[in-house]
Write a protein that binds this DNA or RNA. Structure first.
Length: 419
DNA sequence: ATGAGGGTGACATCAGAACC
DNA sequence: GGTTCTGATGTCACCCTCAT
């Protein structure tokens, strides 16, 4: 028996079971709105975790850039190497990782980095429904990826004192992870919380020292599309210090998001993709502030570019409800005027009816209206079938009808009456 | 109730091909 | 050139059972 265990993965687990730190979060708990993953992982999340639909998920990914140190320019890089036959980390992996961090925080930040959890509990934190084998396998797979993927940092890994390490080779995010399937368990533990992982001690060290990169966990979880989630993670970082960031569609799609399709050689398809991003991310909360996205034509007219801005919220701590109550008269007027002014600045704007716009401003949340305008502006460029005002109102209607909690005023006889 | 696993299928995403 | 269709693949939900 003892001899047998030496070579099994269970050997690691059994040795972990013996330690005294047995804080277990038994019941399901509500994950926090904000999450503080380790600084380096959070900073490079957009690079380390790719979209699962990206074409290169089985290959080594390497990113190079330059850093300036003591007046000399040095080459920095980050290499993500999967175990053979295994995928590189995807956004799903990132979701699992963030959930593990949540559990680790919940059980009181144990210094040894050991996290015990049940698969069902982890699902609850991530926001998945428990779906049997499929979910179990998914968690199992991504735990393997987290522990098996080797990450090498050259002049990239920043320790808690702010120093860049020259080289941090062969890091794995989890120093041990083993998903124990029911069949492998013995009777007494067969129906208890059994899963157990250990976070990389250096990462734990940094997190305990407050060397973290805070994220808006609620906003991140709501993003269903994995490519969009990668973009969100990147934008959150880019807009951390700068108020504005922009990038051409070609570079954004192929190098940042690893969308390699031939279809993106066509301008139209790039534009369509950017519109998806605007639809999904415009108005989404960042850790501080709100993300604002717009599409603009590049100066040479050959491509589009995505323009991201961070809009400051008055009190970043308080989250604005998704469906806010009816706006005050004064607020609606100000918003309506602002929107109308923005519309009139465009060519072939049409003649927006102030009363109608104000009426819509009172009825629907501000982010929805602003998003509708940016989508309308993007949609409208190129094809001049109707005026921008028409497209704008049609876009509001579409967004309202897609929204689970809103209703288009014309659809129901009793909601049109306000005031 | 809670810990899981099994089977099935709907839905989303991407990308190329086909169509206008 | 723009736009839509189609198929491969990945993700996730539903409903079931089992054991304590």
């Amino acid at each position: 028996m003892q001899g047998q265990q030496q070579n099994l993965p269970e050997a690691t687990i059994n040795s972990l079971t013996a330690d005294s730190n047995d804080q277990i979060a038994i019941s399901l708990f509500e994950p926090k709105k904000e999450i503080r993953p380790e600084y380096n992982i959070g900073k490079f999340a957009g690079v380390i975790f790719a979209s699962p639909y990206a074409k290169n998920v089985n290959e080594i990914r390497k990113y190079n850039w330059q850093v300036v140190d003591d007046d000399q320019t040095l080459d920095a890089s980050l290499t993500v190497t999967p175990l053979t036959g295994q995928k590189t980390p995807t956004t799903t992996t990132f979701r699992v990782f963030l959930a593990l961090i949540q559990v680790w925080e919940h059980i009181g930040f144990p210094e040894d980095g050991i996290v015990r959890f049940s698969a069902r509990q982890l699902c609850n934190v991530i926001g998945w429904r428990w779906a049997g084998t499929d979910t179990a396998n998914r968690i199992y797979e991504h735990l393997k990826i987290l522990s098996g993927t080797s990450i090498s940092w050259t002049l990239a890994y920043q320790s808690k004192d702010g120093q860049l390490s020259k080289l941090y080779d062969d890091m794995s995010i989890l120093s041990s992870a083993s998903y124990r399937q029911r069949g492998s368990l013995f009777e007494p533990e067969k129906f208890s919380i059994v899963q157990k992982i250990r976070l990389n001690p250096d990462l734990v060290d940094n997190m305990l020292a407050g060397h973290v990169r805070p994220m808006n966990y609620v906003a991140f979880k709501k993003i269903g599309n994995d490519t969009t989630a990668v973009l969100y993670t990147c934008l959150d970082l880019y807009l951390h210090k700068k108020p504005k960031w922009e990038r051409r569609a070609v570079a954004l799609l192929s190098s940042d998001l690893a969308l390699m399709g031939k279809r993106y050689e066509k301008r139209f398809n790039r534009h369509a993709k950017l519109k998806e991003f605007v639809r999904e991310l415009d108005g989404v909360a960042l850790f501080t502030g709100t993300l604002r996205l717009a599409i603009e034509e590049t100066a040479d007219g050959k491509d589009w570019k995505l323009v991201a801005r961070k809009e400051k919220t008055a009190s970043p701590k308080r989250q604005r409800p998704i469906v806010k109550s009816v706006t005050s008269e004064e607020e609606a007027e100000m918003l309506a005027d602002e929107l109308i002014e923005m519309i009139l600045r465009q060519p072939r704007s049409g003649k927006p009816n102030r009363a109608v716009i104000k009426f819509l401003c009172k009825l629907y949340p501000q982010p929805l209206l602003r998003q509708a305008l940016s989508v309308a502006k993007a949609d409208y460029q190129g094809k001049i079938k109707k005026t921008l005002t028409h497209v704008f109102v049609a876009e509001i209607k579409r967004a309202v009808q897609e929204h689970p909690k809103l209703q288009w005023y014309d659809d129901a006889p009793n909601t049109g009456q306000s005031n």
